[in-house]
């Protein structure tokens, strides 16, 4: 892969990391706050249903994770194993798509559209 593509992947991973840092903080803070308030999972979902803001937030979270993780996993595999080339690139893309799909499914369930994918 060319230096230009590798540089773009590096930029994408750095940028997605910045988004993830913010998303993880918001996610964990909300989680701890809600649980400390004594809410059950069902009660939390009751409150998130129909919220476009939470849907947007978690879709952003999912997109960032789906960009960030495959690039990192690809790098780790290239360093720790002898796997290189197109097959590895393709596997990383598929891994990213899988994360995006599973994540979107969860985000939509938080919004209340879970039944569509159930």
């Amino acid at each position: 892969m060319t230096g230009r593509t590798e540089t773009r992947l590096w930029i994408a991973q750095r940028a997605s990391a910045a988004v993830l840092a913010l998303c993880v903080i918001v996610h964990l803070a909300t989680l701890i706050y809600a649980v400390h308030g004594g809410l059950s999972a069902a009660e939390i979902l009751e409150r998130t249903r129909g919220s476009a803001a939470w849907l947007g937030f978690y879709l952003l979270f999912v997109v960032a994770a789906a960009i960030h993780a495959p690039i990192g996993v690809r790098t780790v595999l290239r360093e720790m194993t002898s796997w290189r080339g197109r097959s590895l690139d393709l596997a990383a893309v598929l891994f990213g798509l899988l994360l995006a799909m599973l994540g979107a499914r969860a985000a939509l369930a938080v919004f209340g559209w879970g039944a569509v994918f159930a």
Binding site: M1, T2, G3, R4, E6, T7, W10, T75, R78
Partner: peptide
């Protein structure tokens, strides 16, 4: 030079 040092064999 920057093209030569970019990528997985270079600075990244």
């Amino acid at each position: 030079r920057l093209a030569a040092v970019a990528g997985d064999a270079g600075c990244h």
